[in-house]
Each structure stands twice: as C-alpha cells, then as structure tokens.
C-alpha cells in the first residue's frame, strides 16, 4: 500500500465514523428526554455531517477518480465502510448514547489533535476544524455522564450498564492496522499506543468523577476499520442510501 493510498483510506474511515455517528444521533430528533437535548443531538449530528462531507470530499480529491462526497457516502456497501464498531451500535437509552459519545469523542479529539499537525495539509485543516466541535461535544457529554452516574440509583445503574456493554468496542479504537501504521510513519498520524494511555487517563478521571466503575479489558471486538461489521451497519446504510439506490443518477 502506498502512502497516498493509506491516506485515502484513512480519510474515508474518518468520514465513515462521522456519518455513522451522525445517523445514530439523528435518531434522537423528536425522541429525546428534553427539548434541549434533542437540539444538542441534532446539533452534534449536524457537526458530524459537516465533518463527513469534508473527509469524503478530501478522499475523493486525493483519489482523483472524480467521486464526490455523495458517491462515497451513498454508493458503497458495508464491506467498504471503515467506521469503528462502537459507532454503529444501536443508540440504546439516553445513557448509552452519552456513554458512547464520551468513549468515542475522548479518542476522537486525541486523534484529531495528532492529525492537526500532519503534513497532509488539508487533513490537518479538517482536523483542526473538527477539534473545536469535538471539544464542545465532550464537555456536553461528560457533564451528562457525571450527572447520570452521580444522579439517582437508576441512572447510575443504567449508565454503568452502558459503559460495561460498550467497553468491548473500545479496543478497536487503538488497534493499529497497516493503514494506521503508514499514517503514523508517513503522515505524522497518531501513535495509537501512546494515545491509548492518554485515553485511559482521561476516561479514568471522568469515570471516577461520575462514580462509575471502569470495566476490565476483556475480549475486544474489532474489524470495523477493515469492513467486518456487526449486523447493525447494514440497516444504517439501507436507510441512509435508499433514495440514491432507488433513483440511480438523480440529482437532489
């Protein structure tokens, strides 16, 4: 794999993460525990859609085969999607959605920080822009995690359960494959081993503030980055891609 190919795959994976997260967050619109939270979820989803567009357009430009953001998003099947498994899991209750946001965003902001100084200039620019949004998302989600963890017995139980359930998908975040290794070597991409330590420190601090227990690192599921997904992604794509698939070639 050339370094250019690795960069294209990497940018596409970033876009995949963003759009899958956007789809999941969008499901909260009209169904949130408070109006303010519906707005927040819609707002975060909107941020992610914006990021997906930037990553996909960038990947398309690099690729040079003329694929635009929509072709990349709507005309690939699951095995070509490289989002991490954590993001395609169903929303669960509000606590689970918050737990996922915290687990992912803590990773994501560290990843973006590393990428912001990449010699791949456009990628660095997108990362710098996404960091601002990510910082805000983490602050919001962390506040909720603390409130739920240290709220009532029920909320504590629910959000602890969510963290326990999702934990198995966190290993993949730090599992470097060939693409990650080339990114690190050639494009100053993140060192996932070092990043894992930082992530653990931040999560430890947050969980303890939220009076939550950190789960043990048991068996970790993985494969999303390489296109080996759970059953959930197929439905996300079927829904998201339905118009593009039903009316091929139409403009919208």
């Amino acid at each position: 794999m050339t370094k250019e190919q690795a960069l294209i795959t990497y940018a596409t994976r970033m876009g995949d993460n963003a759009i899958v997260m956007a789809q999941r967050l969008s499901e909260w619109v009209g169904h949130g525990p408070e109006l303010e939270e519906e707005m927040a979820m819609a707002n975060f989803a909107l941020d992610y859609v914006g990021q997906a567009r930037m990553f996909f357009s960038y990947a398309g430009e690099l690729d040079g085969n003329g694929r635009n953001e929509d072709e990349i998003c709507f005309l690939r099947d699951g095995w070509d999607y490289g989002n991490v498994l954590l993001l395609e899991q169903p929303n669960g209750d509000f606590g689970e959605t918050i737990a996922r946001l915290v687990l992912f965003e803590t990773f994501y902001s560290l990843q973006l920080e590393a990428l912001a100084s990449s010699p791949a200039r456009k990628l660095a620019e997108i990362a710098a822009c996404a960091i601002r949004e990510s910082t805000y998302h983490i602050r919001h989600a962390s506040h909720w995690l603390i409130r739920l963890g240290d709220g009532t017995d029920e909320s504590h139980r629910r959000v602890q359960h969510a963290i326990d359930r999702l934990w198995t998908y966190t290993g993949e975040l730090f599992e470097a494959d060939q693409v990650d290794r080339i990114m690190q070597a050639e494009w100053e991409g993140p060192d996932l081993t070092a990043l894992r330590e930082q992530w653990h420190r931040q999560i430890d601090a947050l969980l303890s503030k939220a009076t939550l227990q950190k789960p043990a690192d048991g068996w970790m599921d993985s494969g999303g980055k390489q296109g080996h997904h759970s059953e959930h992604l197929g439905y996300i794509l079927a829904e998201m891609q339905s118009l593009q698939r039903t009316y091929p070639g139409a403009n919208w």
Partner: peptide
C-alpha cells in the same frame, strides 16, 4: 423514556 434522565439531572 426520558423521565429517569430528568430525575437524575435534578438529583445531581
């Protein structure tokens, strides 16, 4: 479905 969330927020 959001009741427990709002209760948690006020308890906190």
């Amino acid at each position: 479905k959001g009741r427990w969330v709002r209760e948690a927020a006020s308890a906190y």
